[in-house]
Simulated assay, not measured.
Amino acid sequence: MSQGIDAGGAPRPVGAYPHARRVGDLLLMSGIGPRDPATNTVPGNEHDAGGKLVGHDIAAQTRAVFANVRAVLEASGARWEDLVDVTVFLTDMANDFTAYNAVWAEYFPDPATAPCRTTLGIDALPTPIAIELKCIAAFKE
């Protein structure tokens, strides 16, 4: 039996799916991006005078996506420390990996206790974001 989780403190999903689903002692999270839950804006996005996206700040987006992941974890009864596996999607691996990796190290300073991680470079995400996380957490007894 599984239970879908809707986290009010995280941005609304962009499709018909829950923020997360609990299955036994595991929490499987849907892809979480850096959109601000209150305004739906993307922190760190830079636009020209005509409103066209011209750049982004991956450090700002990484911090924002971590805050959104934490909101889903807390709404699910889990903690940041319960993360066991994270898949990261970057739309600009060549330019963003180093800054993203530095922010990761701020949040997970000890590799021995950090979740496993896979980072993929992809062409695009469904909204104008540069990073998305897919996470799995394991509830502690």
Rank of each mutant, 00 (worst) to 15 (best):
V69F: 05
S76A: 15
R63W: 14
A102E: 12
V103M: 04
D92S: 04
A67M: 04
A94W: 05
A71T: 06
W104D: 03
G44D: 09
T98E: 10
N68E: 00
W104Q: 07
R70S: 13
G55F: 08
A60D: 09
D85P: 13
W80M: 06
G44H: 01
D57N: 10
H56P: 14
T98L: 15
T91M: 01
L83V: 10
A49Y: 12
V86Y: 02
A71E: 02
D57H: 09
A60R: 07
E46M: 14
V88Y: 00
A75W: 06
F89W: 06
R79D: 07
V72D: 03
R63L: 08
L90T: 06
T87Q: 14
D48E: 11
A60M: 03
D82E: 11
A67G: 14
E74D: 07
V103I: 08
A67T: 07
V72C: 02
G55Y: 05
A78M: 11
W104S: 07
V84D: 02
Y100L: 04
A102W: 15
Q61A: 02
G51A: 04
V72G: 02
G51R: 04
A105D: 04
A99R: 14
L73Y: 01
A60T: 09
A75V: 12
D57C: 10
S76M: 08
G55L: 15
H56E: 11
T62V: 07
D57S: 11
R70D: 11
D48F: 10
V72H: 06
V65E: 01
V88A: 03
A71P: 07
V72T: 10
T98W: 10
W80A: 08
N101Q: 03
V86D: 02
V69C: 05
N68G: 06
N101R: 13
H47M: 13
T62C: 05
V54Q: 12
A49E: 13
G50F: 09
I58F: 00
R70K: 13
A71K: 05
M93L: 13
E46Y: 08
A78N: 13
T62K: 03
G51M: 10
D48G: 08
A67F: 13
G44M: 00
A49N: 13
N68L: 11
A102L: 12
V54L: 09
K52D: 04
H47K: 12
N101G: 08
N68K: 10
A105E: 01
V65C: 00
